[in-house]
Design a binder for these strands. Structure first.
Lengths: 253, 253
DNA sequence: CGGTCATGCCTGTATATACAGGTCGTGGCC
DNA sequence: GGCCACGACCTGTATATACAGGCATGACCG
């Protein structure tokens, strides 16, 4: 079969769908060995490169695990691993058609205490840079960003005008993000958050602790605090069929 | 160049690294056109299939955007798109070496109100299944799960013993998850949460609203509530260099 | 009996080639 | 001047082929 009839799905896609269907039907279970490339060549009448592409892409998507000499297997953690996206604050605000402004509260160099040193993966006592910035959406405070920056990676960090460029934008120019880590908590606002975000003591706040890496080095860590009544994190996979979402009304018993 | 000297990186990886480096150095900016496959063939002395693979994989990774007839371009949202993983509750608890138990509070069929109907993408008034389950970690309530299930996708949902299998596990067996959506909020606990999770009125809680799709259909939506003092969401990219993380101590001005 | 090596299976990488189809500029025709 | 056909260029898909290298099994030899 040299070419493919017009209107049909590409061969490699048909193979992928076939394997995914077998997994969905339970005929292939986590840990099971799936067809080898040569078996797919016989079964589908395609070339090995096409079978290779189907299996390789399913590996990238986390569905399969491959090992040279052994074979191709169904991944075990499949159903518990979700892929998410999170937008950054400035783009999110401008995406809503609102105006983003930032207020620089603190910009300083300080010696890293034990916690910051561990987070940045450097020795305690090394001088790091710290900024405290309040992000506003149409003049309403929406995020307090307390950030520590590794001076080895971004020595000129403090030279920026943070009312014009967000730390995130600058740092990802200096050092491309290759990995990151997030912790999300619901907290009571402390005095600083209450003052800078203008929230009441009984207003729950979201706090995100984020570390980002560039290669082997930790570039920065940040504590991002949001007023709980004005902000929620959104995270979705690619390929959501259609239609926007809406939070349901409270409907507790 | 037919083959590659032993010990060197594969050609397609060298091309990928080269392009990523150019982006990191700022020589290629979001929206810029990158080399076409034929240009890479000339520049690197590889075949077009190898160049194609390098560009295609960078597209899968979200670095590049490709369009037949037009060319290949640097993605614009690159720095704002993060890939995350989130574990599910039962695995998370057993991963900590603790015991997971579940208490079924409510299991019923009810007519979908407007909010639920929109969330499940069905007509209002259709009978859906609803469960309310409390998940406990070593007998401490850690999550309240209020879930609505699309009867078209999983008609036998209520037949399960939810003290033995989590809704998540069952549903992903019935219908493989192909897409999902999360909203994370910090909220004050309402009466139900306070009663079932045993939290005080001034204790902020995390609430996650999650919808999952299987193909075109919404399988289920769930409101997951966590006590803020006992729980945080963790989300990290693949390929974090090493070393576990630790939340830093509070260090506000 | 046990260690070593050969063999076969499988994946990883790479090339050369071919055709299909989208996009856009250019030049000719009306 | 405006419209349309054509060609240049680009990506998408697919094939046949080749060699390198990981892994397990089993045969052979000490």
């Amino acid at each position: 079969m040299k070419t493919r009839p017009v209107g049909e799905a590409p061969h490699y896609l048909r193979i992928k769908e076939n394997i995914i269907a077998l997994i969905a039907e339970g005929k292939l279970r986590p840990g099971d060995r799936v067809y080898s490339e040569s078996e797919l060549v016989s079964a589908f009448g395609v070339s090995r490169m096409t079978a290779n592409r189907a299996l390789r892409e399913l590996m990238f998507e986390g569905v399969l695990t491959r090992s040279a000499g052994l074979g191709t297997f169904v991944s075990s953690q499949r159903q518990d691993v979700d892929l998410l996206q999170i937008r950054n604050i400035a783009e999110e605000i401008s995406g809503r058609g609102h105006t983003h402004t930032a207020r620089l509260v603190v910009a300083e160099r300080i010696a890293a205490d034990a916690g910051v040193a561990q987070s940045l993966d450097i020795a305690a006592g090394i001088e790091v840079m710290r900024t405290l910035i309040v992000h506003l959406e149409d003049d309403q405070p929406i995020q307090m960003e307390e950030r520590y920056v590794n001076p080895v990676v971004a020595p000129d960090y403090l030279a920026n005008d943070f009312t014009r460029i967000t730390p995130n934008e600058y740092l990802s120019q200096v050092a491309p993000i290759t990995a990151f880590e997030h912790f999300v908590e619901a907290i009571r606002p402390d005095a600083t958050i209450r003052r800078l975000l203008g929230v009441k003591p009984d207003q729950p706040c979201l706090r995100v602790f984020r570390r980002t890496w560039s290669g082997e080095a930790v570039v920065t860590c940040a504590l991002l605090s949001y007023p709980g009544d004005k902000y929620r994190l959104e995270a979705r996979s690619r390929d959501i069929p259609a239609k926007p979402a809406r939070l349901p009304q409270e409907s507790m018993p």
